[in-house]
Every structure is written in C-alpha cells, then in structure tokens.
Design a binder for these strands. Structure first.
Lengths: 356, 356
DNA sequence: GTGAAAGCGCTAACAA
DNA sequence: TTGTTAGCGCTTTCAC
C-alpha cells in the first residue's frame, strides 16, 4: 500500500537516497531528516510549551518551512485522543432564517482552535445519523442548536461527549445550556401594549415540540394575563414566513373576536404575518394591527418591517457556548451549567395605540 | 500514556482478564476479542464489499452491537489517506444573506458520505489561515464559495487538493467550477424593460474584486446597450442591504438624470434599494421606479418585495459541486471542468411600465 | 535538551 | 475466507 519511501527506522544508506515523491506531503520524519535531528524533536517544535532549545527550534523550523511541513491533525488526534473537531448541529430549515447563530458559533470555535463539523438536522432520523457520524469522527464536543430527543442525548452522555445546548434544554435532566430568557422583555413589551390600550391579543406559536416556542408562549400568556390583555386565540405555526401568514388568516377566520395585537414567537412568522396583514387583508400595521416578534434577526429591521421584537444576544451566547464546550473538553468531570442571558427589546415600529 | 489495556499482540492470559475500562470507547480489537475472531475480520465487516462469510459477519456484528462499536474515522483516515472531510469556505458576511447555498452543499456532501468542515472567510488573511487549517486536517477537497486569491488557489493546487469553485473562477487559470450563467435571463429581463418603455437605467454593483458582480454587471451593460436603454449611472455596493439603500441615494443625488429602473447585482441590495425608495424617497415601486435583482433568495419573494429577479438553480449547482469534488477525490488526475447552469427569471412585481 | 521506542485504531498486503 | 503483520504520522514516556 505504502508508496511512502520512509521506513520506520530508515536504513542509513537509503535515507538520503530516496527523494520525496512528488505530491506526497512532508511528514515530521522528512523534516527531521532534512534538519538532521530526531523526529521527536520536530514534534516538540510544533507543540507549544515543549522544552526545546532555540537553536534546535530554528533548525527544525527552517527545514519545516522548506518542506512546507504542517503537522497532520488527524494523526495528532489519533494519539492525543483529541480531534479538535466540534459537531455543530443546526436545523437546515430553521437556520435558513437565522444563520447568524451558525456563523457566530463557527467564528468563536475557530478562535478557540476548534473546527466546526457542520450537520443539518431536520428530523429525528437525521439526528440519529448525525450522532453516529459525530461519534465516528471523534468529535470533542457537540453544540446543538437543533432538536434532539432525550434518548439521543443519553447516547452522547453515555459516550462522554460534552454537549452544549443552544437555546433548548431538558427541564428534567441535567445538561449544559446557553439560553436566552426574555421574561423581563416580554413583560416590558406587554406592559407597553397594555398602556397603548390593547385588550385583545392573539399568538402564533411554533411547533409544540419546540422548547423555545413553548417557553416563549408561556411567558406571553402569563404576561398578557397579568397586564389585563385577553388572549383570544392561539394558532400554531412552524417558524416559517409562510406559517406566519397562514396563522394570521386562521386567526381572522376562526378566532373568536378580532385581536388588536398579534404576538409571534419568532421574527420570521411575524414578518409573514405582517406582510399578510398589509398585502392581503389590507390592514395598516401598526395602526390597525400591532405585531410583535422574537429573535431580533437582521432582516426584521429592514424598513419594510421595522419589527418590534426581543433580541437575543447571539454574540455573547455563542461565545459562552464555545467556552463551555472547551471547558468540558479539558475537564470532562465539569458539572453541568446553565448560562442564561437577558434579551433586549428592539422598539421597532410595529406596535401602536390600539384602534378604537 | 495508554490507559488502554490492549497490547498489540495481547498475551493470552491477560486478554480476557482485563475488562474494558469504563468510558473508553471500544476498538476493533475489543470487538475481535469478544467475538473470538481476528481484528482484521472486524475491519472487513465494516468495509463494504469485503469478502466475508455470513457467519463471520453475524458474529462480529453481534459483538460490535454489544460494545456499541463504530469504526474510528480518524484512524481510518490516517491509513487510507482519506479523511472524508471537505472544507466548505463561505463568506460569513455574505452568506448571512444567502444561507441556502451552504445548507444545500452540506446536505449533498452528507449524501455522498462526506462531512463538511465549515470555514468562514471574510478577508485574505482568513483565507490564508483557512487553507492551512484545511491542509492540517487533511481535507479531501475544498468547495469555495468565498473569495480566494490566485496565490491561495495555487497553494491548494500544488498540494493536490481538489478545489471546486462555486460561482467564481479565474478566467485565465484552469479550474473546476460550477457556475450560473444568467446571460439569457438578463437579456430577457432587459428586453422586457425596454418593451415597458424604459430608456434610462442605473446599476448597483458589488465589490469590484468580486467576479460574480463583475460578470453580472458586464451582462447588464451589454444587454442595456443592445436594447436601447442608456446606463446613466453605476454605483458600487458591497452586496448588503444597507449598501443597496445607500446606492439608491447616491444615484438620486449624484447621478446625471433620473433612471426609471435600477438593476442590482444581488437581491439583498435590491431589497435595500426598494425599501429606501419606498420609505425614504417615497417612491412607488414599481410605478415610479422599477427594480431588478439577482439570485432569487427566499426572502426576495416575500410580499413586501416580490422582487423581479434571476434565480440560480442552487440545488442542482450544489449537487454538481459535490459530485465534481467526489470525482476528483477518486481520480486526482481528472481534468478541470466548468459546469454552467442557466438562471431562471422570477417575474415578481417590481417592474412596471416606465413613468411618463 | 535530545533521541529511541512504543503505540493511538485502523486498513491492506500477504500468507495460510 | 481468515489471520498475521506492517505501517499511516504523530505524541509521549523513558533513558541519557
């Protein structure tokens, strides 16, 4: 198999005779031979914090540069049992509308010397497959911003792979989580709606299986009640633009009474809802109908929308997620932890005084 | 270092005595021992197309299942010289607005048994780093949907790493490319504009370094001339929403004369342009001003925009990109190839008869 | 500070 | 068909 001329213990006579085969990448042995030092010396030069003399380092580095040598991360991973790979699980469908998260996480991983192995998960079966793949590739950890069942999580746990959940967690199971809690902001917005005279609201939620959706819906319900606004109807969407539009239709057709405000548990649906209100129902948003979203995605602030919404601090959350992963890669016994971030209200222009 | 009880040639007496250390993952040796077969038999069971008896396979698979054994892809990569990793290079900034591409490519890679190692590239320095990282991780190939200099490409070429460019290429250098050529669609749209009575147009381009932008701009210029529409001003944006808005301001303020149509070389700028026209300049799009985009991103068809644009067949392009990579991983001597796809006009509603 | 040697978990040539 | 064996390229004791 080996078209590799190197022998483990190169015979002295051959060692200089056989040239580097063109196209084969240089190994630490090649560098060692050229520099006239041992292979382990080369290895040490590329491991920060190793004890090595300046002279040696210089010689080795010169040879390394000449051969364009870069240590083989795969081989290193094999011996160190550290792949420096982190599986990032996102929902392809959802992340289409929230790509900020993925890119921030990737950048933070990169800054921490880790690489993102990207997996899209859009079903339970996908998740099963992805978990096996991640396991095969010896990922050091998993950052999950997609759905994962308790059973699937149990598999990772048993295999001692650190997992950080991004904006989702199992309430009845210890796990490591970075999470945005918009409680205060929900209260703030709802209070404002109440002050603006709103008394009837409807809500468009996400899939009932989705934790973020459930949690946001719960907060909204509580806040509405507390502020004397009646929730006259709740319809279920799937986080997409289309489902926001459809949700509004459903509310108008089948709802009992007309809400003056609609709260959507994410921005994408809020935008769908707003467009439907304006272009199909010919309502003036916000004069006839106020709309509120969640997330604070970039496009929610385009002039066509200027959505009033609750932003998540994506940057700080991603940073935390990566830090939590690295901590748990270093010390697998690290206990679970939940880092909770506050949201922030983006005032926007999609709410106004209730029509009289 | 090894807390691994396995000896390369396990002494018979020890072999059954030492239990699997809790938490250590099972290796093919563990499976072999449990099944009472050789380690290579285990290996063969997990390599499709190996000659192995049904009885053997059954025995091995039973043991494997019991130990939850999955072959170590890192170790496999080391010996086969195939990592099954493909570096996917995207521009973080740009892909924020065009995530479809990334997800399609990832899915196609996955279907081909390859994993996506995600890299975001937003500067030349990023690209240098990314190329070194990809090299260290022994990626089998690179799909680049981000900027890459000729020098950087040369490095990959020299290292014999197959590269497929997505929507960009070096005209004066052989390379493997999947590309969307919107020539006909540009002509179609421009002709339509001409038929609608437009005689003055302006254009908002992307960065001059960007090939896609240059190419689209060139096509637009040619088509306009051919159809008797004068290009009265061209301003440069950076593909973002904001730059589209700013571009329109610049055209209105500094342009010589007022265009009745604005062509933007991507949808995001077209949307920024449209919003600026409507909300700041209080123009009616399309009655007062027609706007055309490029790409066909999902949100360009939201009711607020309904942009007339030229769509790229992302799905088929991604599929081709992955196929081209796999072909070149199998046969590195494969010659370069350029697969060109046609665009498709999405009629939209952002163009109308020129105001009189 | 440096080199020799073992071995991470796997595949594949070779022998039986 | 099966087992034996030699590495893939690296890190890490262990002597010196």
């Amino acid at each position: 198999m080996a078209n590799n001329p190197r022998k483990k213990n190169p015979p002295e006579d051959e060692s200089k005779v056989i040239p580097l085969i063109k196209g084969r990448r240089a190994t630490s042995y090649d560098v060692a031979r050229l520099a006239g030092v041992s292979q382990s010396a080369v290895s040490r030069c590329f491991k920060p914090g190793s004890s090595i003399s300046g002279k040696m380092r210089e010689r080795v580095m010169k040879a390394a540069k000449e051969l364009e040598y870069q240590p083989n991360a795969i081989a290193r991973g094999l011996i160190t049992q550290r792949s420096n790979l982190v599986a990032v699980l996102v929902s392809g469908r959802l992340n289409l509308y929230y790509p900020e998260v993925l890119f921030k996480i990737t950048e933070e991983l990169s800054a921490a010397g880790l690489r993102a192995l990207l997996f899209t998960v859009d079903s339970e079966d996908d998740a099963d497959m992805v978990i096996e793949q991640a396991w095969q590739f010896q990922v050091d950890g998993v950052i999950s911003a997609s759905h994962m069942s308790k059973e699937q999580y149990a598999v990772l746990e048993k295999r001692q792979i650190p997992v950080v959940f991004f904006n989702r967690y199992f309430a009845d199971h210890p796990n490591t989580v970075v999470y945005c809690d918009p409680s205060e902001q929900v209260e703030e917005v709802v209070k404002q709606l109440s002050d603006l005279g709103h008394r009837n609201a409807s809500m468009i939620t996400g899939p009932s299986a989705n934790m973020v959706s459930r949690e946001r819906a719960r907060l909204v319900e509580t806040s509405l009640k507390r502020n004397g606004i009646e929730l006259i109807s709740t319809v279920q969407g799937d986080f997409t633009y289309e489902s926001g539009a459809a949700g509004l239709q459903e509310i108008q057709l089948h709802g009992s009474g007309a809400p003056t405000v609609i709260i959507c548990v994410n921005d994408m649906m809020a935008m769908g809802c707003m467009d439907e209100a304006r272009s199909v129902l010919e309502l003036d948003v916000p004069k006839d109908l106020s709309i509120v979203g969640f997330d604070g995605i970039g496009m929610s602030q385009f002039s066509s929308y200027e959505l009033t919404t609750i932003r998540q601090p994506i940057g700080r959350m991603s940073e935390s997620a990566v830090r939590m992963i690295t901590e748990r890669v270093e010390r697998p016994d690290q206990s679970h932890e939940k880092r909770v971030f506050e949201g922030a209200v983006i005032p926007g222009g999609s709410i106004a005084r209730a029509p009289t």
